[in-house]
Design a protein around this nucleic acid. Sequence first.
DNA 1: AGCACGCCGACT
DNA 2: GTCGGCGTGCTC
Length: 703
Amino acid sequence: MTTTVTDTQVRVRVRVAVDAPQHSGLSEPLDYLSERLLAPGTLVQVPLGKREVTGVVWPHAEGAAGAELDASLLRPVSSVLDGLLPLSASWCELVSFAAHYYQRSVGEVALSVLPPQLRLLDAAQLLARLKRMTKWLAAPPEQVPEPMRPELSGDQAEALLQLDAALAAAAHPETAGPPAPVLLYGVTGSGKTEVYLRAAEHALDRGQQVLVLVPEINLTPQLEARFNERFAAHRIVSLHSGLTPANRLRNWMAAHLGHAELVLGTRLAVFASMPRLGLIVVDEEHDPSYKQQEGARYSARDLAVYRAHQLRIPVLLGSATPSLESWQRAEEGRYQRLSLPRRIGGGALPRVRLFDMNTLPRAKGVTTVISPPLLDALRERLERGEQSLVFLNRRGYAPVLHCTECGWKSGCAHCSAWRVFHKLDRTLRCHHCGFTERVPRACPDCGNQDIAPLGRGTERLEEQMAELLPGARVARIDADSTKLKGALETQLNAVHAGEVDVLVGTQMVAKGHDFRRITLVAAVNPDGALFTSDFRAPERLFALMMQAAGRAGRDAEAAARSEMWVQTWHPLHPLYQSLRTHDYAAFATSQLAERRMAGLPPFAHLALLRADARTPELAKAFLQAAADWAAAMPEARQVTLYPPVPMSVARVANVERMQMLVEAASRGALQRLLWHWLPELHALKREHKGVLRWAVDVDPLAI
DNA sequence: AGCACGCCGACT
DNA sequence: GTCGGCGTGCTC
């Protein structure tokens, strides 16, 4: 640290991470002057150009002191947000790692994962909030009777026994080596949650804090309820973007000050400041929502593993259908795999029936929604007073309208996509840009009155189910039916209360909800994902199907009669064959073999360079120039640069989107190339005027 | 990202 | 004569 003496004042040079977007070229913390020493992690207000921004005092990088600006050019720190304990060095290090790995500025990441309110408050206001939080905390947790802890199954006890070593070692992080991440592989209903709870208990008993990550907080109310019930005597806070700004700040501060012992949150919670963190749980670790899709495109699951390693604490990754990345690491022995292969109470997994759609008589132009045998199975449930779930991963009434006369289709004027027909409000809606119009009375091209829906979505399925099953109470849950606040909860309660016989829904209902009375789950038309170019589509489909199947027969008594029906044109497809026998391991083995052959993750590492422009040519020219520059780098020998291609939906809101895939055998090689590439990309953007924006996505989910 | 500066068209 | 359009460029 440099200090300069001017007159009587000692002025200290401090580095401050500010939210200067990456494309401004200011990717590292900036230098300021302070009249006193400021601990790294302290929040400050600093001048940036003409405005005042919030920043975080950043630790000095080890060793390499880059080109230092002349102290006389530096501006002083405006104010210090005293009163808030500085963020820890390990927190800064986590943020710094994430920023570098995902190629964003340190300040952008730091400020985007802190509660937004923190930027708006001055020192006095912050103090007031702290006082209010302390008061809130002072309300003692209600005195509750010792929570009921269910008897452990043999599998659970075994898993916990094995976990014990890691948990015990973690109590002495300074002496033990970092424990290997634990992959808790357990079928739905096998009691993964109980293992999370017991592991959390261990950590809490030692006075440590526990971080529990879930894919989407509103989709997992039951997990939240279980934690609240078990740890009623402890302080639990949630952390996700749906909180009001004031509550998010309050909960964040409670965790930061160590008052909250348990933090339950979505991906952004992986950055929660927790001084005594002793355990991280990642539930449904395979879930795609752990990957942030804008700004810094981080994977919360991967960062959880990094953070656990950094702190030498255990991390528990739970899933019935682990990501192939995690599965492969378990195969290699880098992760410790603990299995819960049986359902609690010996309940059977639902029998999976693959219905071959080819066996139906072909009526020209008519596609059968529900095959006769499936219809019979649904009727049977209806008669027995049991519930059924009919799953279709497409919302709206029909994905497209078309004119039977001239062939017109309901395309979007601004996107290369069809507008979806929503019958309820008689609109055509583009699911990409939101462009909405009333359905035309006649074909806009030829005036023909006969325009018809093509294909089907959940709205239409709901309607057809009501026709096919007269008297049945049919309900639908999807993003449209749950738009209003609280609607999801109301609708779920209706299902739980037995007011619904047949539930139609998208993947929303396949995840997490525990429906006791459902004994039949049917996937009406899941084939679409089998033959797409997205290499992760089969993995997602398998996970979704397994999850959907898991909705049936949660009740042990009903499990024997529980079935999952899959209507398919490809019943012999290996994916469905593995599904039929609930054999995730077989599925993973075959998928991993394919990935290895194709040089795809987890056997290769990917990054995408995307560019948005007014015309595809402009976007392509930028990417091509970027590729040409990269190809001349020495690092390029260890990476493969693929030609720029349009994204699967090439135009959204009149912006043309192209992308280029970069592949490398090693993470390091990819990182080195990106490191050199990014400054050049900033420069190239200036030359390519038509390019609206560009972005790098490291470890993309879809290509 | 903000927020300047900067150099050309329709208003009091 | 000025108000303001958003192109270009900088922020320790």
